[in-house]
Simulated assay, not measured.
Amino acid sequence: MGLMDLFKKKNSGNVAKDRLKLLLVSDRANCSPEMMEMIKNDIIQVISKYMDIDADALDVKITETESDANNGTVPALFANIPIKDMKHQPKDN
């Protein structure tokens, strides 16, 4: 599943197929739904220090990507984090 695949209009069969792929990749990466929720909460906590985000619309999943060593695909963490605004840090004197 490439980046451009995310923008294509999909029928319900293709959506189900993509969900199954994501489930299988998550399973192969040994990442339970509970672990994904903990990762999501940690990301929200850290990112929220620097910017206002839409935590309800945050989407975190494990996908596949080509490895840098050209030996096939490897699991990759994908996070879509809607940013509402940047927080301004006080200047040090």
Rank of each mutant, 00 (worst) to 15 (best):
M1E: 09
G2I: 14
L3W: 07
L3P: 06
L3R: 11
M4F: 10
M4W: 09
D5Q: 11
D5K: 08
D5N: 12
L6W: 10
L6G: 13
L6I: 15
K8Y: 06
K8M: 12
K8G: 06
K8N: 10
K10H: 14
K10Y: 09
G13T: 15
G13C: 13
G13Y: 10
G13D: 15
G13E: 15
V15G: 01
V15F: 02
A16M: 11
K17N: 13
K17Y: 04
K17T: 10
K17Q: 10
D18E: 15
D18P: 08
D18R: 08
D18F: 07
R19W: 09
R19L: 15
L20Y: 07
K21I: 07
L22A: 13
L23T: 12
L23N: 14
L23F: 08
L23R: 13
L24P: 03
L24F: 07
S26R: 15
S26E: 12
D27H: 13
R28K: 14
R28A: 12
R28G: 08
A29K: 05
N30P: 03
N30D: 14
N30V: 13
S32C: 04
P33K: 08
E34M: 10
E34G: 09
E34K: 10
M35S: 11
M36H: 03
E37D: 11
E37I: 01
M38S: 13
I39C: 07
K40G: 00
K40E: 00
K40W: 00
N41D: 06
I43P: 00
I44G: 00
I44C: 00
Q45Y: 01
Q45G: 00
S48K: 03
K49L: 11
K49V: 04
K49P: 02
Y50F: 09
Y50W: 07
Y50K: 08
Y50R: 07
M51S: 15
M51C: 15
D52C: 07
I53M: 05
A55R: 07
D56P: 03
A57V: 03
L58G: 00
D59W: 01
V60N: 00
K61V: 03
I62L: 02
T63R: 10
T63V: 14
T63D: 12
E64R: 06
E64W: 03
T65W: 02
T65V: 12
T65G: 05
T65L: 09
S67P: 02
D68V: 08
D68E: 10
A69C: 09
A69M: 11
A69R: 09
N71S: 08
N71D: 14
N71V: 07
G72W: 05
T73G: 13
T73A: 14
T73D: 14
T73V: 15
V74M: 06
V74P: 02
P75K: 08
P75A: 08
A76V: 03
L77Y: 01
L77P: 01
L77C: 05
L77W: 01
L77I: 05
L77S: 01
F78N: 03
A79E: 00
A79D: 00
N80Y: 04
N80V: 04
I81S: 01
I81Y: 01
P82G: 05
P82T: 06
P82W: 02
P82C: 07
I83M: 05
K84T: 13
K84I: 14
K84A: 09
D85E: 12
D85R: 11
K87L: 10
H88V: 13
H88T: 13
Q89D: 09
Q89P: 02
Q89F: 04
P90V: 08
P90H: 03
P90Q: 07
K91L: 06
D92F: 04
D92K: 07
N93I: 09
